[in-house]
Amino acid sequence: MSVAELVAMLALVGALTFLFRYAMIGLFAGRTLPRWLHSLCRHIAPASFAALAASELFIHAGEVVFALTAPKPWAALVAAVVAWRSGNVLATIAVGMAALYLFKALL
C-alpha cells in the first residue's frame, strides 16, 4: 500500500479510537447506562488484560503452543504469585523478568 493510504487508515483508526473513548463521556454524556451495559463494563479491564496476556504467552503465529520447556509461561506464573501476594506492579515486573532469565538459563 502507498504511504498516503497508510496515513489515511491510521488517521481514521485514530479518529474512531477517540470517538470510542469520547462516546460515553461526551456524545451520550446525558444518558444513564443501561444496567446490563454497566455490568459488562465492570469486567472489560480484567477480560481484556487476561485475553492479551494469554495471547502473548501462548499464541505464536495464530497457533496455540503449550510447552513445558517454554520459559515465559513459568516466569509469568512466578510473576502472578508475586502480583497476588504483593499487589505491586513494579515488583511483579522485576521478579517476572528475573524469573525469565533464570528459566532461560535452566530450561
Binding site: R42, H43, A45, P46, F49, A50, L52, A53, E56, L57, K72, A75, A76, A79, A80, A83, W84, G87, N88, V89, T92, I93, G96, M97, L100
Partner: peptide
C-alpha cells in the same frame, strides 16, 4: 517485550477482587 504481559498480569490482580471479575 516480556514486560508487556507481566504488566497485564500485575493489573489483573489489582482489578480482579471478586468472583465475577475472575
Amino acid at each position: 517485550d516480556f514486560a508487556v504481559p507481566l504488566t497485564f498480569i500485575a493489573l489483573l490482580t489489582l482489578l480482579v477482587k471478586e468472583r465475577a471479575g475472575q
